[in-house]
Amino acid sequence: MLEARLEQANLLKKVVDAIKDLVQDCNFDCNDSGVALQAMDNSHVALVSMMLKAESFSPFRCDRNIALGINLTSLMKVLRCAQNEDILTLKAEDAPDVVNLVFESSESDRLSEYDIKLMDIDQEHLGIPETEYAATITMPSAEFQRICRDLMALSESVAIEATKDGVKFSCSGDIGNGAVTLRSHTNVEKPDLNVEIALSEPVALTFSLKYLVNFCKASGLSSTVKLCLSNEVPLLVEYGLASNSYLRFYLAPKIGD
């Protein structure tokens, strides 16, 4: 059986809220290392990969591998019934028909319980190769969100170019062009505002802004975001969570004909 207690229901609420517009039905794969999810969006150009490690829960118990097939809209309806500060416990039997969610208020004796019916989801699982990326950019998640939203006002696509001088986000559209360039930057007092660019070789790739703006819905999960790029492979956008858990998005690049 599965029994996993999260100190803050808000974490799962934010994760599901961030991905529910990209993927609708998906399996939450539970085993002794934690709860994982991998799903492609409908158009198959983006991939969501979430890992909530066992250490993110206390306690965490999962005796055998269980796939919980859940409709994210349904899950979101139930998660909205939780207060942000509530403690959340996920429970399921070994061959479950439902997943049980229990919300406990840390301040009162209120206890709410919900069951969500599970679905059989036949999902292909993709192997993501370990990649030494040519450029890894760590930056404030709010800054990345702002850049994507700003450039989307002008264009459908953004070119991301990382060089030793910095990282340039540029676009061109019907009304004109736009570009934002960031250089490495260290803020001793507010390290969350740092911009770090680790580069082994220059990279230039183009991506659909619609997807990037969608990924940025995860900005509330982490103050920083990591962008990993190599020529001709999907972009990795990673939001790190406590205890080495993460929410990752992969996006196939746009390639000129």
């Binding site: 991939l47 993709l126 190769p129 183009t206 196939a252 690049p253």
Partner: peptide
């Protein structure tokens, strides 16, 4: 003039 290949082009079936 852009082509966007599916993500399965890059990541194979596990």
């Amino acid at each position: 003039p852009f082509h966007q290949a599916p993500i399965t082009t890059y990541f194979c079936d596990a």
